[in-house]
Design a protein around this nucleic acid. Structure first.
Lengths: 269, 269
DNA sequence: TCAGTTGTGAAAAACCTGTGAAAGCAGGGA
DNA sequence: TCCCTGCTTTCACAGGTTTTTCACAACTGA
């Protein structure tokens, strides 16, 4: 389950008056607040698992725009609100186009700032909804409450990342997910060009799945695109390894009637 | 990769000056705009497949707040921006808490309003990125969520580029697209002079289409111009099966185009 | 007929993914 | 503190696919 309402907000601003008042109110509202007076490296922002960032570019000086752009690029899921003094329409438009979600002009009432932070965070949260209950697919049972997956009661011994990846894929069963999307959702920030982490974890998952459930093929590769989770029984004589393999489940187990929807992946053969 | 950045926006406002200016700019930017002067039933908003709604509650009168709340409740995925005259902090906070994503105070520069609409839509798009519905044309089913097309449940085994090309063409069904346009949209950058890639991929598509759906002709060449997607049954002896003469399958997944800038009420409920 | 376009098949170049292994990190225990 | 252990990230290579390029045949419209 997601944390109920707790908003995690970082504020980058040098206006101590504004920050002080905002902090007080945020504390009362039970928010998790982090304040800085200058640029915070993007990696740190990642580690903070923020909902939103309230930023006054003037606190950063020269590279304010650059910083805004970079943060928005690395953390496309982070709500970013610019809150600064007088500005021209052109500046505001530029900021919004660079990736900011909102732009507030100081002086502004902290209550309004908070309401806008909430509005931004609300959208973000609604996406992470659902997917709390256990998922069953073929022989596999995925239990979010344990951060683990099982086959016939045996744990797959998944690490945290492996589990999150599997959970994400299984939650989008039948759908092809691009690597960038996967990375973004599991790692929480944008994938660097050329990063192979997703591939490596897919391999690990496949190994562990194969070990416990060798009669099924769960993760399919879509060349040039990404991966798709969709349990398919392996027809061949593959499961010859003393595993309790139900040869041809023919009945309940198969999630899809093979007659129709057996969309082969292109690399399937 | 996704349908371009066409934004579908509805405006509910009685301020004809503001609306007129906004409409002009939106048209230039290629947005799909719909204007109304009073409340529009939520169901109609749903049918429009909007990215965002720009609303001046005063255009609705009494039930402005109620209306806002209802729309936000029924369409949690719709970006809602309130744009109205003078207001108190309390009003703005209330509006934002009711579900509005942003609040702009008039008078405001249309460019800024548009930037804010973009900012809101950006979020929305990134969320249901792969949400694009399947397209059906004749025997063909195009599924963006799978990066693949099917005929009677059989995959065409399209590669990524092939799929994107087909998707683009099918999305502009009946319309002739020039090579330069196609290249620009599928490859993402300008076509070099003399590049034949589009032709080559068209051939590959035709081959794969012919293989699975030989009774139809899908892609037509317009000499000196480009290509047009438009399924036509082959009357001759070609089709091995008695070709069902379904002239216009009208399998519509794309929302019906909002006629650019329709100045009119669509009669409130 | 001619000049310009488009269809085709095949080869070359570019690109992707699977894989094994090493390097980098973080946490726990001695 | 240092070491150990397990997890994550990075790297390089092999093998396979896809995309691009080319040359030429077939075709279109004036």
């Amino acid at each position: 389950m997601n944390s109920p309402q707790t908003i995690r907000l970082a504020v980058i601003d040098t206006d101590s008056g504004f920050v002080t008042v905002l902090s007080k109110r945020a504390e009362v509202a039970g928010w998790q607040l982090r304040v800085a007076a200058g640029a915070v490296p993007a990696e740190e922002l990642v580690a903070m698992k923020l909902n939103a960032l309230l930023l006054d570019p003037t606190a950063i000086g020269e590279g304010g725009w650059e910083y805004l752009k970079r943060v928005c690029g690395v953390l496309p899921d982070l709500g970013v609100i610019v809150c600064t003094g007088r500005s021209t329409v052109a500046q505001r438009v530029r900021g919004l186009r660079l990736g900011a979600d909102d732009w507030i002009t100081k002086p502004c009432h902290p209550e309004e700032a908070m309401a806008r932070v909430e509005a931004i965070s609300r959208r973000r949260r609604s996406r992470n909804e659902s997917e709390a209950g256990p998922v069953v697919a073929a022989e596999l049972e995925i239990r979010p409450d344990q951060y683990q997956a099982f086959v016939g009661g045996d744990s797959l011994d998944l690490t945290r990342r492996e589990f999150e990846l599997l959970h994400l894929l299984a939650g989008a069963q039948g759908q092809v997910l691009e690597r960038e999307t996967i990375y973004q959702r599991v790692w929480g920030y944008a994938m660097a060009h050329g990063d192979r982490s997703v591939d490596v974890f897919i391999r690990k998952l496949r190994q562990k799945l194969e070990k416990r459930s060798s009669g099924w093929s769960y993760i399919h590769t879509h060349f040039g695109v990404g991966y798709r989770f969709d349990p398919e029984p392996l027809t061949g004589a593959a499961g010859a390894l003393g595993a309790p393999v139900a040869p041809e489940p023919a009945g309940e187990a198969a999630p899809e009637p093979l007659s129709q929807v057996v969309h082969n992946t292109f690399t399937a053969g």
